[in-house]
């Protein structure tokens, strides 16, 4: 029982961190109707941005996280303006495919640029707080706990922002119907830019929070990106609440999968397969995810 609880709690914590990563992806999807295949590299850039801010500018770790988010917000805005922008005109015929290809191109570009610029050796910023919380059989390191709490705070702030501020409501309006939003005087194009910037910033936040838990390397985003895809499908693309549920579900399923897979020798090698299997079954049963609104093609 202790063992089960231990795995479940560990899965819950890691799942919350994944959820933060997925929230940015889902925000971009709900407003732009674009799956950002470059999300993993934005997460990587966030991790490095915070690392350099902490080690070279000497700011305290929490400020490093904030700076990384600001930097990636700016990056997201520029990328959206330069590359995604033509999608909303008639120049682009097949928008789903266009988006998949350009964001995938961004991944190839940034991953390799990362190796050139950041170098091949692992880096790690200092921990937020060293040590671990030990309560009976439960052991959670403070870094994980802090990251999970920060994820809850950021996700709550995001929900609040979307529900309570005028900019957030404008984003939500565009995500539901860009035509109606345009009618009531919201410029959808501005909202696309804002949403992509915010989504990038959330990815950066996740990268910066995870940096002290797992070390930094240019290809650190590959695996979490796949996890985030799984989460947004589980949670239904475009739902922030859904991505929280999806994140926790994924974390717990993977943890328990490894813990209880009959053959211990292969359990670890199959970790990612548990999540991928979850995605496959979810899509077979519900082609638009667990809590998804029907997917409208971007026209």
């Amino acid at each position: 029982m202790d063992y089960f609880a231990l795995l479940a709690i560990n899965g819950l914590v890691i799942g919350l961190i994944y959820a933060l990563m997925a929230a940015g992806l889902t925000l971009i999807f709900s407003v732009l109707k674009v799956v950002n295949f470059g999300h993993g590299t934005l997460y990587m850039l966030g991790g490095y941005a915070s690392y350099y801010a902490i080690t070279y500018l000497g700011v305290p770790p929490p400020a490093g996280v904030v700076l990384a988010m600001v930097a990636l917000f700016a990056f997201g805005v520029v990328f959206e303006r330069l590359v995604l922008h033509p999608m909303y005109t008639n120049k682009v015929e097949r928008k789903d495919e266009y988006a998949i290809i350009v964001t995938f191109g961004l991944t190839v570009l940034l991953l390799n640029l990362g190796i050139v610029v950041f170098g091949p050796f692992s880096k790690s910023p200092p921990p937020f707080l060293a040590g671990a919380l030990i309560a009976g059989p439960l052991i959670i390191t403070y870094d994980r706990l802090i990251a999970a709490i920060a994820a809850i705070v950021l996700l709550s702030a995001l929900s609040w922002f979307l529900a309570r501020t005028s900019l957030g409501q404008a984003l939500d309006a565009v995500s539901q119907s860009r035509e109606s939003a345009a009618v009531i005087g919201i410029n959808p194009r501005r909202m696309y830019t804002v949403a992509f910037g915010l989504g990038s910033a959330l990815a950066a936040g996740a990268g910066a929070l995870i940096a002290p838990i797992f070390a930094l390397s240019p290809n650190m985003g590959e695996l979490p990106a796949v996890q985030a895809f799984i989460i947004i499908v589980l949670g239904g693309m475009g739902s922030v609440g859904g991505s929280i549920v999806g994140g926790i579900l994924l974390g717990v399923v993977e943890g328990l999968g490894v813990g209880f897979f009959p053959d211990p020798n292969r359990a670890l090698a199959y970790t990612e397969a548990f999540g991928a299997l979850l995605l496959v079954f979810t899509l077979l049963v519900r082609p638009t995810g667990l809590f998804g609104r029907p997917h409208a093609r971007l026209e």
Partner: peptide, 23 residues
Amino acid sequence: HNVVTVELNQQDFTPALLRLMNA
């Protein structure tokens, strides 16, 4: 002894380590 196979791009080994620790 027992052998546990590790996938190289894995980042979270905690579940597997917990399993070994509780063996």
